[in-house]
Each structure stands twice: as C-alpha cells, then as structure tokens.
Amino acid sequence: MTPDTPSVFGAVHLGYLVIETERFADWRRFGADAIGMHHDALDADRMRFRLDDKECRFLLVRGPAEDVVAMGWHLADHAAFEQVEARVRASGVPYRRGTEQEAAARGVERLLRFPGPKGITQEIATAPRTAAEPMTMLAGGFVTGESGMGHVALTTTRPAETRGYFTHVFDARLTDYIDETVSGAKLKIRFLRVNERHHSIAVAAVRGAPVDPIRTRVQHLNIQVAELDDVARSYQRVHELGFSMALSVGQHTNDRELSYYARTPSGFEWEVGWNPIVVDESTWEPSTHQGISVWGHRPVGQTIIDKLAQFRTATRSLAHKEQTVPQLGGTGIPDA
C-alpha cells in the first residue's frame, strides 16, 4: 500500500473456508454432531456448515486433498472489494471471477479468486447472504460479526513472504509473536490481524531450518463459541463420538483464549475457543510471548509414530520449494 492508497484494514473479515475431502460421512458427524454446527447438504459432492445466519461458513467439496483449499474473505462493501481487486490486477497474477454457481455455493454476491501462499487459493467476496432457514445445531452460538469467523494457522518455510502477502493484499497488521519449543524445535509464530480480532492469520515457522513438519497446508483453524459451556460440551462430544483430540483444554498466552484442539477427519486440527481479547488500535503495541499457553494445551495420545511421521514430513519438505506469490507482496517483511 502506498501512502495515498486507502487501507482496507477493518473492512476485511475471514468469511468462509473451502475444504476438499472424500470423507463426507465423517465430516458430517464431526461438524454437526461433535463441534455442534448447523449442517446443510447441497448435493452428493457438496455440503456446508453454518455458524450464524450467513448461508455458508464452511463449504466442503468432494476431492482428494483432505485439506483447506481456499480461504474466503468478506469485504465490507464494493469499494473495499474493488481496492483489493485493483491490487490483484496490478500485480499481474492470474485471477478469475467466480461463476454464479461458485458464488451461490459460498453464499455471496461478487467473487474473485487468485493465488495465495502454500497453494491456498484466496477469494474475496461481497454481500454474504442471510439464510432463509433457521439454524438447528447443538452449540449455543458462535462469535462472528465484525471480527469475522475465527482464524487460520499456517506452518511455513517462508514466514517473511507469507506475512508480506497478507500485509500487501489485506493491509494486515502484526499483533504479536510467540516463541515456543516443540519436541526440540524452536518455533516463531507471527499473529496477523485484519480487524479488531486478535488475529485472523497465524504464521508459524521453525527457526533456523527451512522445514515444514505439517502435511496439510493449514495446521489448524479456529472458531469461537459464545459461551464457555460450549467449549466443555463440544470437548465431551468429540471424545464420545470417537474423534481424536490433539491438545487438551488450555489458555493461550497472547490472546488469552481458552480452547482445545480436535483432529479433523482430514488430519488438520480444529480449535474451539472462547473469550479471546479484542485489540484496541489506539493503544496496541506488538510484543513477544514465551510459550503458546499459560496452562494446559497438552498433547493427547501422541505416540512416537506420530513424531516420526512429522519428522519424515519435515525432511520431505526440504526437497520441495514452498509456493509464494512475490507479485502480491510475497517478497518478505523482516521482523521488527
């Protein structure tokens, strides 16, 4: 963004995610019966989950990836949409407008699709549609609104480039850092916000080594429940229905969110959290926290086989160049 270009910060909200999977039956049980979201079956190859009155928060499409394949950003108005669209067009990257069918599946009006870090397509959209049917779900409610629907965490071998991308495209701001050691590996995690939510993107990297120990493009995604009881009740349902838990209940050091992490049918993790802090732009200054948790968030059922699998994934990542989009700011932003 140049000094004379208006910022879209505050007009950007994480709106929906697109997940590609062949495990529709397991995802139906996980999303509706364990996590407690509203489920809509569209056809044999597509289904959606809702968190609120919007038609779509998660679109699941049939395919082999077993991963998040697209991130959808709601723009507050057509002016903000056109600002981001202009940045994409000026960069020279390939982009295309979504079809009427694609927009309808996502419950939006205008849709533009373009490349993002780690091969995750980025989508911008306007005018998310309100569903005609009331919700039927086990959870009492989720927090969305002006903060968007939660956050996505990525592991990367190119953290500066990934941060640069979201800063250039969406005017993301650095909220803070966490330094953590996991199984002997030193991690630095950067937290980026696009509105008052503490972060919509978390970017984690192994310090001093260009390796990525996570198979999936997304390490975890987060949704926020409105009531503490819904953390406990969904945690219990995840266990009772036989889904595996990744991390037990705990509280984070930086955003103070109380949460747990379940493992999805596709293998990446799903965080259910409650009561994170809201950033006050007039006073906030980035800082560094030691460790991800004040208490809790202990690994559940992790075996030596799991650790070896992560080691193999990290080793294989050395042979593959991670996708960045240098035309859209992915040339890197050094840490302060």
Rank of each mutant, 00 (worst) to 15 (best):
V231C: 02
P94D: 13
E123G: 05
G140M: 07
H220S: 06
V206F: 09
G332L: 09
E133Q: 15
V206D: 01
E227D: 12
P210S: 08
K186L: 13
P210Y: 01
E269G: 08
V18P: 04
Q83W: 04
G208D: 08
P213Q: 09
F191V: 00
T5Y: 09
R298T: 12
P265T: 05
E133P: 01
A132Y: 00
R28H: 02
E82S: 15
T181P: 01
L17C: 01
T283D: 14
I305T: 10
E180R: 00
R197Q: 12
D67G: 02
H13I: 00
G150F: 05
W274N: 02
L51T: 10
R48I: 12
T253E: 07
T121G: 01
G267T: 11
V194Q: 10
T130D: 11
N254A: 14
D335K: 00
G107N: 06
P286H: 11
A105Y: 09
I201K: 08
V218A: 10
T156A: 05
P3Y: 11
Q224E: 13
V12L: 07
R190Y: 08
L318Q: 10
G98C: 03
M37D: 04
F81T: 04
R29Q: 15
H320K: 13
V272H: 00
P115T: 14
D280Q: 09
E196P: 00
K54E: 14
A160N: 12
T324K: 03
G250V: 11
Q302H: 02
